[in-house]
Design a binder for these strands. Structure first.
Lengths: 177, 177
DNA sequence: TATCACATGTAAAGGGTTACATGATTGC
DNA sequence: GCAATCATGTAACCCTTTACATGTGATA
């Protein structure tokens, strides 16, 4: 599933500019489990327009580039519907933290501690962000948010209860890798 | 962090062929949080050899291509150590399932049910795979495995307890996207 | 004064996946 | 007989990231 399809999804929530769609990936409802940036979003919107899956109306602005507001067409709606009927790709997860953990026994204890501390801080921040629902969240967004909350909470608990396991096996203070 | 560095990490556990390293990503200790395939592993090993970070001894085999067994050099060990001291990239997570969930209110209930069922089945299989530790796991591998177990278990619990939320909002039996 | 938010877009470079190419042996 | 395992490697394609290019208005 590529950025074009994701943009179609973004537009289900209402018309939006490329700039606003980008924000959905950076801060908004997509930010925790998808990513895309200007470099892929703008070209995607152009392609979608060419294919008639979205329409674009330009709103002239003074002192700024014209705002291009995109909306889903019937064809675009159907196209998204079809994409959601296809077999979805399994989740992809990539963690350099977990990679580093595999070598905990070869890293200085201070480094392992820092790694865990940083991760816990990052995860707690995520939890804070996700804790309060937005009033205009759709039920699906709400579900996704709570799902994320459950997973992050479990991660934090696990790390706090088990960090000693990798900290103990780390080497005193020297690098041994 | 690119595949070259990941290969360095793979070789910390002992010498290996490209084929064996690939298995570490497919089934082995890396499979749950990293990925790489032949198309990136073989070129990586060539580059690492050129740079003196690994050595390669060819073991002639009859009726098969020569086996090329790679081992880490001192320089390679140091290089990995340095990579692990750098700031690590935050986890990346991509989920088409969660994307689809955002549109649950527009999907037929049967589709939402299938999606959840498939996901639960996949996660339960993962849990089964990860439940029994391998005797030659390092402490780091053990930690990563248990971490994964904690996260998957939480995911399963959440899904089982909350699936009704998205199933209820799904549309009766027609596609409405 | 400097950074952030608004606003669009392109191009080069980098990196990875997928498919292709080859071929024997073992187990079902 | 067919699939899976062993075993290496290349190349086209696809996509993304990053940097570049431009400029205003508000906020700290």
């Amino acid at each position: 599933m590529q950025v074009t399809t994701l943009c179609l999804g973004a537009l289900v929530f209402g018309e939006a500019t490329g700039y606003e769609i980008n924000k959905m990936f950076e801060d908004g409802p997509f930010s925790h489990f998808l990513d895309a940036s200007y470099g892929s979003i703008y070209p995607a919107l152009t392609r979608l327009t060419d294919e008639g899956l979205v329409t674009c109306k330009a709103e002239p602005q003074e002192k700024r580039p014209d705002k291009k507001v995109y909306s889903l067409t019937e064809k675009g709606r159907r196209s998204l519907g079809e994409a959601l009927q296809q077999t979805l790709a399994p989740d992809k997860f990539r963690s350099e933290f977990l990679f580093a953990v595999l070598f905990a026994h070869l890293l200085p204890r201070s480094r392992v501690r820092t790694l865990v501390d940083q991760r816990l801080a990052a995860m707690k921040e995520k939890v804070e962000q996700m804790t309060d629902p937005d009033e205009d969240d759709t039920p699906g967004m709400d579900f996704a948010r709570q799902y994320g909350l459950a997973v992050y909470t479990a991660s934090i608990d696990f790390l706090e209860n088990n960090r000693h396991l990798i900290e103990e096996i780390a080497t005193e203070e020297e690098v041994h890798v």
